[in-house]
Amino acid sequence: MLTKWLTFSTLSLLLAGCSGNAATTWQQHQVSSSGLYQATLTCATAPTVAIFQECALQLSSEQALPPDLSLTVDGGMPAHGHGLPTAPQAVPTGKVGEYRIDGLKYSMVGEWVLGFWLHSAAGQDKIVFRFTF
């Protein structure tokens, strides 16, 4: 637990630009399907196989984020037809638009999609990252 907290604290510092180790982090940027949200996925390292990834998602929008906004995570390998090996969760950190991604693993190298469904009373949206490692 302490390790997870320390890792996440370090990641938060990196996100805030307070560290010189940004070269070790891995980032992806994407816009939601509706175009309403911009998202940055930041992980402590580039994707690796079979170990839990330390990642966070930062959402921003020209308008205020819906107060009831919640996220679910999904993903998989389109070429192989299988999903993520685990059921990761997006956990609000308390900072506006910031979510810690817990329980994310990849089972093999190749092309992956990692998707975030955005739920709120205002409607649904999605953000899909595509990457290969």
């Binding site: 637990m1 839990f52 999903g83 993520l84 090996p85 685990t86 059921a87 969760q89 329980g103």
Partner: peptide
Amino acid sequence: ETCTELQFLTRN
């Protein structure tokens, strides 16, 4: 809380 494999076991 350290049982991460079980905690994030897929339900699908």
